[in-house]
Design a protein around this nucleic acid. Sequence first.
DNA 1: GCAGCCGTTCGACATTGTCGAATCCCGTCA
DNA 2: TGACGGGATTCGACAATGTCGAACGGCTGC
Lengths: 252, 252
Amino acid sequence: MPGPIQAIERAAAVLQLLARGRLGLGDIAASLNLPKGTAHGILRTLRTVGFVEQDRTSGMYRLGAALLHLGTSYLDANELRSRAINWADALAARSGEAVRIGMHLEGNVLVVHHVFRPDDTPQTLDVGALLPLHATALGKVLLAYDATVAGPLAQRRLVSFTRRTITAPAELARALGEVRSRGWASEAEEYLPGEAAIAAPIRGHGGLVLGAIGVSGAVDRVFDGSQRPRSGLVAQVSDAARAVSRDLDDTG
Amino acid sequence: MPGPIQAIERAAAVLQLLARGRLGLGDIAASLNLPKGTAHGILRTLRTVGFVEQDRTSGMYRLGAALLHLGTSYLDANELRSRAINWADALAARSGEAVRIGMHLEGNVLVVHHVFRPDDTPQTLDVGALLPLHATALGKVLLAYDATVAGPLAQRRLVSFTRRTITAPAELARALGEVRSRGWASEAEEYLPGEAAIAAPIRGHGGLVLGAIGVSGAVDRVFDGSQRPRSGLVAQVSDAARAVSRDLDDTG
DNA sequence: GCAGCCGTTCGACATTGTCGAATCCCGTCA
DNA sequence: TGACGGGATTCGACAATGTCGAACGGCTGC
């Protein structure tokens, strides 16, 4: 494979950096080990195409509006998401909980679809959000079934979000074995206090795991009195996952 | 201003192209007047950074998942949106209609926020969608108040979406004058049959129009018996727009 | 009014991307 | 099965292009 184009790689790195928040030219140049002049040229170009905007007064750079449209255009073309939308709605209605669909992206779970819990409480849409692999039910499913996901994670430190986050690699490995044997994953207060989740794998052509679908909600609704995921919810999630997989296999 | 970086400009053009749908290498090269080899190098680079994906079997290219995260990261940093969220919720609750907030992007209205109509009917989120300037209430507001928006549009043909879409430049100019004198814009079945909308400008520092906020819904709910926008709704929208503007001015 | 910081410009250099032809791969049709 | 065709991909020589670091200019806060 011949070499990638340097300027484009650098521009992408700049965008990834800015996704974490607005930065000044100096910070950007320093983070990427680039001369200020070079970084400025990249920024200037990204600004002309609308991928980056600059604060008039402070001079700081932030992401631009054109990226929003590109991001949502990705969603429209996403096979997994478009197939899963109907099943996700049904799952949310039946389970009474919020439903999310996730895929692997560079050591994270990328949320590609989100159906609000069917009640009137205000909720924030987290389509496009990145979640940790090891602390969410969606992520555990991806880790358990996709070798290309699990490999890179071995290098990374398992960061702790709550007291119950799994941070020991051995313990995570055991949990993933359990996921594989049961065919679904769960999580209680490992990422957000008071929140629990259940997820199952979505499979494509030859059983290949493409993503995960799951419900999440208050821990006392998702888990029963004996600290276990409610079996009714588990069945609903598993059924939905199988339905999406069948859908993908039929037409894909 | 020194020249922008060619490779990055081209990469951006490729992404904009792919936002319209998946394409083969040949199509991309032809559309951009590039040799296939050059286009391939750009695509290969965009693939390594996750901005583009390629179909294993057909070889076709489509946008990549990394863009989704960038797009939503833009939303998090967007001042206008974050200020307006609370007011948009309130407007939706009071009016009983869907609320959208739009900004100008390259001759279109970019939807940066969307609150569903507060009932149980299924609705699709169109944050990130691009709407026409001349056929929507949000767009008319932007056209009426922002010279940098109106200028470029003069060159473009006014495409027709329904029988009621304004396609004559003179008629549009008259309508925009009316918008300026009233302080708000409306639209009935000019974009989607059965749909009507009302919108008002959101202003920043020195009265500069940054975007627009408005409601949209069934034409017989938004308009009254005599084909005019319901005055109650107009007042609600105008109030919301003023509230957001004040919010922006206070802290911006 | 001075010092330091930060974004921006500039021009010489050679690294880097560009180009178009040649190659490979795969699905299709004879 | 074998030849065809359309597509993606590779390759290497060329020079156009991006890179670099130093110098500039405007701003803020001492």
